[in-house]
Structures are given as C-alpha cells and as structure tokens.
Design a protein around this nucleic acid. Structure first.
Lengths: 244, 244
DNA sequence: GGCGCCAATTTGTGATCACATATCGAGAAT
DNA sequence: ATTCTCGATATGTGATCACAAATTGGCGCC
C-alpha cells in the first residue's frame, strides 16, 4: 500500500528544546534592555518566572555566559554583566570594524526586495523615535541593523556582532529618553538608508560608523559615573528577581 | 584573640568548577585541532573520557555551542562544526578587521617587558616550524598572537577573536605538513615581530593581515573539496568517540 | 547604639533517573 | 544480493535530589 505519507513533515518544526526557548527569551530580554547592569539573578527565580524547571535555565545561562551577557562571581553568584567605560569603548571599536564590514558588503548585495524591507524597518524605527518610545527603540534599532547585515550573507560575522549587542543591551536602562540623542541617531540611520539605496558601500560604512560612535558617546556620558545608578540593581525586597 | 589571618587568601583560588575545567579542556582541544570537522560526539562519551559525569559536560558544551564550536543537529545529535568555504572567508575577513585593530593598538602599548615575552613566543613558534611539528604549531601560533593582543588591553575584543580561532581550529586536522605554508607563515610572523619592536602600528596591522590571508588561502585549498576528507570523521567502530 | 557572631535559608553544582526519539543491526521478503 | 522492517540500543533532554558554600537576618555583647 505504501501509505508512508510522502512528505508529511513539511513544517519541519525546527527542533526547539526548552533550553533553546529560555535562551532566546533571556537573550532578547538582555538586548532589549530589560536587565540592569550588575543585576543579581537566581536560576530558580528565572525558572519560576519563565515557567520551567531550573535545568533548561542552567543550560541557557551557560550559553549567555559564553557570550558575556551574564557572569558567575567568584562565589558562583549570578549577575548581569556590567561593562566599564573602557570595555564599552572596546565594544564600540569592534562594532565599527565588524558592522562597517557588513554594511559595506550589504550595500553591494542589496536587491529591490531588500529595499522595501529595510525601508519598512526604518519607518518603524522612526515611529519609535517620534513617540519617544525608549523601551521599544533598542529593539527596533537592532532589527533595522540586523536586517541590513543579513543581506551581507555572513552569518558568522553577524553572530559576533549580535554578541556585542548583547553586551551593551543592559546599558540602555541607564539612558533617559534623550531627544537630542534620538535625533542624531535617526540622522545617522537616514544616511545609512540613503547609502544602501544608492548601493554606496563606503558611504554605508561611514554612516554605520557614525551611528555606533554616536551611541557610544551617549552611553559614555552615563557609564563610569560611579554613583547615581548604583541602586538600580537593588530590588531591596528579597526574592522575586525578574518578571520576564 | 583576633586570629582572623589578616589576608590569608592571596591566591584567591579563582573559582574553578568542574564545568569550567571541562570547558577549558574542550576549548583548548578544539583550537589545537584535536577534533575533526563534522566529528560526531556524545555527552556520555566525553564525560567518560574526561573522567566526569555528564552534567558538567552538558554545561560546557552549551558554552561551546554558543561560541560555534559544536552544534546540535535537528535531531539533537552532537557534532563538531564544519565550516564551509564561504564561512571560512567570513571568519578570515572578521579576523582581519579585529586582529588588525588589536595588533595596531598593541604596537602603541608595547613595553620592553613585552618585547622579551613576544620574542620568546616567536622563538618557540619558529622551533615548531623548523621541526615541522604540525600538531604543536597551531597552539604555538595562537599563543604568539594571543600574547600580542593581550597587550592591546581589550579583553572583550580578544574574546571575540578567540571565538573565531575556535571555529577554524578543527580545520587544522585537514592540512598536511606543508613546508611552503610554514615558511610563508613564519615570514609574516617575522614581519609582525619587527613591526611591534619598532612600535609601528600600521605595519603590524599589515603583517597580521597578511598572516591571516595566507592561512586562509592555505585552508581554502583543502575545504570545499567535497571528497577526500569525508571519512576522517568516521571512526567506523561504534562507541569510544574521543580520547582527550 | 553599633558591631560581631551564629543559625536558618538561599543558591549554584553535580549526580542520578525517567523518557521520548533517533540510530543501528539483524532478519525476512523480494 | 538488496532493500525493507522491526526490535534493541544509544542519546539528548528535563526533573529531582543531595550537598557545600555563601548570604542573610537576628541575637547578644561591648
């Protein structure tokens, strides 16, 4: 009879273990700035908040530890990594090197289809900026950059770049809704868009560089001011360490 | 009596869990080329080989998965990542960007003490090249480069660079003891050393770039030749997957 | 009132178990 | 001889438990 269902598994569900889901949730949360630098967490607390057992959280945290998002202190206590000003500058320089490379390559591989998608993401970013949506801006910003870099077809380099994004994610909770910064940022984004539309690699690289430098300058004004942001990581009341 | 031992913990033993040890062992093994691209492994097998239970191995593998050294197939089978030719070129380009940055910065921060250490590592590398020690060459090569980049004082960027090294590590099992490649490689290393001694940043960057490009060319001659290296990953006899 | 010490709790780590699924090998049908 | 099928084994994943170390909170002492 041969009823072997010729090609039944088209969705090909793409294996997604619980540890993978937890990993993605935490990673997105970090990049979106939902964790404060230096914030203390617990495996059991995260597991409870995410509705899973500690085991998948443990494995997800190991991956994120490898990416530098979280760290275990010398006494094995879990916390969100807090970058120093010098480290932040290192991230900035590395981003300029790598994202400049990707932007330049993307400009030479753009197609009309890409134009539409990039423009759409740009509009969404502009909307977040207009609404002074500080919470949603980082996510929209990363989505815009990611889509551009995907066009460069260098997933390994993009992975390294995203690792850097994970590192600076927590810093976003420290920046206030700064209209000046948003304006300068959107100016750079506009130039990125124009350069890509004109398939101008060097211009795209220059615009991305300006964007990164501008963001780094904005953050450096907040980092390494020893006081002021110290109590952010202290929920004061014990237990209940994270919501989502 | 107050016998609180004023400052007893100078060694500060630096927490080293079993999972950390396993992680370091595996990572060093990958970078040194002791794993073949595409090689199949098992958690239990690695645990037995390393003399530990599966649990620390699981956590170590999660970190290495995050770094791209290992991967879990769609059926959750563990294997060493096998880079394609295109991915290898991506790694090459990213290395040029990042390691060039570190080399240039290192040149401007070198001191006399560094001179001695770098020279020593260079001599060791030269010795490995003279002896055609293909097994020991990658390790000596990475140690030489790492020591240089450490001088740049950018640990985050160095971490990203080492991640790329982990990716190309397995490729080394594919290259035969090629005298021509070793000679060209040592020529580039000689130029790196000279540039650093003269505190010439641009020259250091150029020499590092040549070194990376040369190594990539060497590897690209072996990769993407579909046949020939296919049986390397097949121990044929089941069980017993890795020695160390 | 401030400071140091001690017990109770918290927390990361490692081990073991259970389970679903994949993989492998032998045997049978063609 | 080849291919298909089916059962035994292998393997990653998740859950739970035990334990050591550390953190916390409170009590007593100076």
């Amino acid at each position: 009879m041969k009823d072997t269902k010729p090609l039944p598994r088209l969705p090909s569900v793409a294996r997604d273990s619980m540890a993978d889901q937890v990993y993605r949730h935490l990673r997105d949360g970090v990049m979106a700035g939902r964790f404060a630098p230096g914030q203390r967490l617990t495996i059991r607390g995260l597991a409870e908040a995410l509705g899973s057992s500690p085991m998948p959280v443990r494995e997800a945290l190991r991956r994120l530890q490898a990416e530098g998002a979280f760290e275990f202190s010398d006494t094995a206590r879990l916390s969100v990594v807090q970058l120093s000003g010098a480290q932040l500058r290192d991230v900035r320089d590395a981003r300029v090197a790598l994202e400049g490379l990707l932007a330049e390559r993307a400009a030479s591989r753009m197609t009309g289809v890409d134009d539409a998608e990039i423009t759409q993401l740009y509009d969404r970013l502009q909307a977040a900026a207009d609404a002074l949506d500080v919470a949603g801006y980082p996510s929209a910003n990363f989505a815009f950059h990611r889509r551009i870099y995907e066009i460069a077809r260098a997933p390994i380099i993009l992975g390294a770049v995203e690792n850097f994004w994970v590192l600076i994610g927590p810093c976003f909770v420290l920046v206030a809704p700064n209209a000046t910064h948003l304006r300068r940022s959107m100016d750079a984004h506009r130039r990125i868009l124009d350069a890509l539309m004109h398939r101008d690699g060097p211009a795209a690289r220059a615009a991305v560089t300006d964007d990164i430098m501008q963001a780094a300058n904005c953050l450096s004004r907040v980092i390494d001011k020893p006081e002021k942001a110290r109590s952010v990581a202290a929920p004061k009341r014990r237990r209940r360490d994270v919501s989502a």
